[in-house]
Every structure is written in structure tokens, then in C-alpha cells.
Amino acid sequence: MGTAFVGGALSLTLAALAYPSMLGLDTVSNSNDRIIANTQWGPLTEGDRDFVVKVRAAGLWEYPLGLIGLQKGQSPAVKTASEHLIDGHASLDTTCRKLGPMLNITLPNVASPQQVAFVNQINAKTGKEFDYEFANILRQTHGSIFNTIAKVRSTTKNTLIRALADQANDTVLDHITVMEKTGMVDFDQTLFQQTTPPKLPQSDLTPPAPPAGQPLVVLTPPPTATSTPVDIDGAAAGSGVNPAPAPTPTPTQ
């Protein structure tokens, strides 16, 4: 989508959809419930918009980390987890790139500085240390976003955001599970870091906005992809389920 805006479908101002400034996992905007656009799929809040950006940004560091894991991972379980990262985030990315123009949301092309630091920290390790850092950092970050997904799914009034939250919930739960199956997760440490994250400046937590006109980075699905992007047509129509026919009136005697 880049910075292009699609007219007709939304009633909003450009200022209302300014690039989000608060996207950190440890930060909750006081205005998350503020409606910034009334769309044909339901109202869009600041929290809804930020959620789409978070999902996109997650793929921008976890997908390449999955590629690194396939090369550097020592255990079969870490290589399997890497395959799940690539598969799941390619599918979520497809959904985000479709929803961005529909909801006039500017998507990032680069992960946040904090997320880039995670990649560098893990990639700096080798052997068993690589596997350990890989499993624990990814278990921590997926656990952190899991509650956010549930909140968005339970509160959003936007059909497209609900569909994305459903897909993200399934994907993140799968990734949590494969990290745990490595047998390397230190739950005491991971849960402590998950519930008491460091206080970082917003500049570290926010993925930079893309330059005007820059094409969107595409996370290519693997040849063996099993994850399925959201059925946008079905989601846009509502729940994706055709309503039951109205009952035939009973003739009066």
C-alpha cells in the first residue's frame, strides 16, 4: 500500500490515520478506543489500526529470523519452529497487505528498532546458544502479543479487524507451541520478562514509517505453505457465513 490512500470506502481525515506513534508491547495508548474512521466494515479505532501495524511489523523480523533459524538452528525442533515462523507470517503478511489499502492504514516496511535488536541478539549466537536464545526470545514476544490479540478480538467492531485477529490468534498460538516443543524455554525467565518488560523510548518501539512511494516489502510464502490468509471477500461481506433464509410466514386460517 505504501502511502497511497483509497477514496470512497472511508469517511475520515488524513490526520486521523496519521502513522501510529505508540506501538510498543509494553505501552497502551489512552486513546486506543477513539474512532478514527467510519468504514463500511465497521468503525476503526486507534487500537485497531495499531494492531494491523503490529502484526505487519512482527512479520518483518520473525520471518527473516525464521530463515536464519533454518540455517543456524542445531536441533530439529528449532528448524521446525523456523518453518512455522516463515509459513505463518507470510500468510499474516498477505492479509495485512490486503487490509492496509482497504482501511487506509500505512504499513511499515521495517521492523521497530527493538525488534531489529532481537534479530541481531539471536543471530549473534551460534550452536546451542543460538537455539536457546531463539526459543526463549520468541516465546517471550509471542506471549506478550497473545493477550493483545484477545483484547482486540473481543472489543473491535470492525469485521476485517476481527478476521485478522482470528488469524493472528491461531498463528501466535501455533508459534508459542512450537517454541515450547523445543524443550529449551526457561518459563521462569520468559514469563518474568514477558510481564515486566523494560521501559524503552517510543522511538525504539515504533517501526519507522516508509518513505513516500516505497513499494511494500512482500514476505513470500514457502513452497510448502499450509497457513491460509483471511478470505477478504468473505470477511468484507460480514462474518463470511451466508445468513439463514427468513422463515416462511405461516398462512392464517
Rank of each mutant, 00 (worst) to 15 (best):
L103E: 13
D170Y: 08
N120I: 01
G7I: 00
R56K: 15
P201Q: 04
G7N: 13
A37Y: 05
I137L: 15
T80F: 11
V241L: 09
N158K: 05
S75V: 05
P201Y: 07
V116Y: 03
L85C: 01
M184V: 01
I161L: 00
T206N: 13
G183V: 01
G143F: 01
V217Y: 04
V53N: 04
T190P: 00
R34D: 14
N147P: 00
S112W: 06
L219N: 07
T250S: 10
N123T: 15
I232E: 03
T250P: 03
T190Y: 00
D166E: 12
N158F: 07
Q74R: 11
F51I: 01
N109Q: 10
A237K: 13
T106P: 08
L138A: 02
F130Y: 14
Y63H: 14
N120T: 13
I122P: 06
V110N: 07
L70S: 04
G7R: 12
T248L: 12
P249L: 07
T106F: 03
L92Q: 12
P215S: 04
L25D: 12
V119W: 06
V178P: 09
A117D: 12
R56W: 11
Q114L: 14
L67E: 14
T220G: 00
T106Q: 14
G238N: 04
F5M: 11
I122M: 07
L70D: 12
S239W: 08
Q71L: 10
H175Q: 15
T206A: 00
T177V: 00
P197Y: 08
